[in-house]
């Protein structure tokens, strides 16, 4: 079976046809893979190199913890991948970036106003939670399309706070 696996925007084509070998981007590896009956712990011997990891599936992505680092990995089999491609899901990267509240809290300030041109890393919302002021910053360059909260508002987890639209083309 062939899988297309994405991690950190890197694509890997992984073929699993045998119990003891896999092919990754055309290269064959000897594997011995086991799930332990303990909190998602897995043990992999990859060409006899030993990896212990914790894997957990949530919201259609696999979270993999290896040597302290957490990786978010999406795995699609070839059929699902082709279907998604055909439906255009892959290319439907929406122009707007939505800034959601990562946790419940109180809005301390909203330094960016609607219409502001912002750069990646600019402060958009300051949220107080867990006894700290947390700065929510623009994930990329753009224009602030909407700010849906004002200072003093209580917000819930995942509540939409602001929307950043694609940067406008400048007149050449």
């Amino acid at each position: 079976m062939k899988y297309i696996t994405m991690v950190n925007n890197q694509e890997y084509v992984i073929e699993i046809d045998h119990d003891d070998t896999i092919v990754v981007n055309g290269e064959r590896y000897a594997i011995d893979f086991h799930s332990l009956p303990d909190g998602g712990v897995v043990s992999l011997l990859l060409n006899n190199r030993s990896y212990e990891a914790v894997v957990d599936e949530r919201d259609e992505t696999w979270e993999v913890l290896v040597r302290g680092e957490l990786y978010s990995v999406t795995v699609q089999d070839e059929r699902a991948y082709r279907l998604a491609k055909a439906r255009g899901v892959e290319t439907a990267v929406h122009g707007d970036v939505i800034i959601k509240s990562p946790m419940p809290g109180i809005i301390i300030a909203a330094p960016a106003a609607e219409g502001d041109v912002v750069q990646k890393g600019d402060k958009i919302i300051i949220l107080e939670s867990m006894k700290m002021e947390n700065e929510l910053r623009a994930p990329r360059d753009g224009v602030v399309a909407r700010v849906q909260v004002k200072p003093g508002d209580s917000v819930e987890k995942d509540q939409v706070l602001a929307v950043i639209a694609e940067p406008q083309e400048s007149d050449e």
Binding site: M1, Y3, T5, I31, W62, V66, R67, E69, Y71, V73
Partner: peptide, 16 residues
């Protein structure tokens, strides 16, 4: 990034 390839393989094997 140390173990990206390994993470990809681990997730794929788990999904498989």
């Amino acid at each position: 990034v140390m173990d990206e390839l390994e993470a990809a393989i681990l997730a794929t094997l788990a999904a498989h």
